[in-house]
């Protein structure tokens, strides 16, 4: 192992851990709130089961606003809110707040897009069988759109890793921040290169995993 990696071993492991925490929490929020939000976005669209112009416009506006912020600005803009929620605006825990919000907005849009791809006839068949909205969602929509939902989560996760490099400005830590601090600010180019390689491997693994799962569960 290159000497420089051995030298910074402790910091590297810690920053990898921080990245996992930040990205992990983001994924949890994406699934826990982004999935329902995206489903509601889909259902309230024109011509869909719960068509509602007002609810749709409101949700749509929220998602668009969050996603139109340059992420760096969003992190800073959210500092008062973060302080209110977490008690501090600095550190890994604080950094998860803007990351989770962007995760919800980002994934919900991808969820909406995947659900649009479900053939209308399938929903119609579900209604004709007397399914409730809840049953239509869980027994038809999510089943039929599952490979798209997994691919969307894969894409989202990779974006979260990228976003997580920015939260260094609020001391969020993580591998990207580590690479910037040591590589750029301390001129340890070699170290930075290794960090980039680690991130590339990480992203490759996630993409491979996502694609494989998505293919396996796609029987269409």
């Amino acid at each position: 192992m290159p000497e420089i990696l051995v030298q910074y071993q402790a910091e590297i492991w810690q920053s990898i851990g921080e990245t996992f925490i930040m990205v992990g929490v983001s994924i949890l929020f994406a699934i826990g709130l982004g999935l329902p939000l995206g489903t509601l976005l889909f259902l309230t669209r024109k011509g869909q089961l719960l068509e509602n112009r007002y609810v749709f416009s409101l949700l749509n506006l929220f998602v668009n606003i969050v996603r139109s912020f340059p992420f760096l600005l969003f992190v800073i803009f959210l500092i008062p809110f973060t302080r209110w929620i977490i008690g501090t605006a600095i550190g890994t825990a604080a950094a998860t707040v803007p990351l989770s919000i962007i995760a919800i907005a980002y994934y919900s849009r991808l969820v909406e897009q995947s659900l649009i791809d479900v053939p209308k006839g399938v929903i119609e068949a579900a209604i004709s069988m007397g399914a409730s909205t809840r049953e239509i969602i869980f027994k038809f929509l999510f089943v039929e759109a599952r490979s798209g939902l997994v691919l969307g989560l894969t894409t989202s996760t990779i974006s979260f890793i990228s976003y997580s490099t920015i939260v260094g400005v609020v001391g969020g830590g993580g591998i990207g921040d580590f690479a910037i601090r040591y590589g750029y600010q301390r001129f340890e180019t070699e170290l930075m290169t290794y960090m980039i390689i680690i991130m590339i491997i990480l992203v490759q693994l996630i993409q491979f995993l996502g694609t494989t799962i998505s293919k396996t569960i796609d029987k269409r």
Binding site: E124, M129, E144
Partner: peptide, 16 residues
């Protein structure tokens, strides 16, 4: 509706 069956031109099965 549960006691009225229906079939369609394009079958509308759940492919997954």
């Amino acid at each position: 509706r549960q006691s009225i069956g229906m079939i369609f031109q394009h079958f509308n099965l759940v492919s997954n």
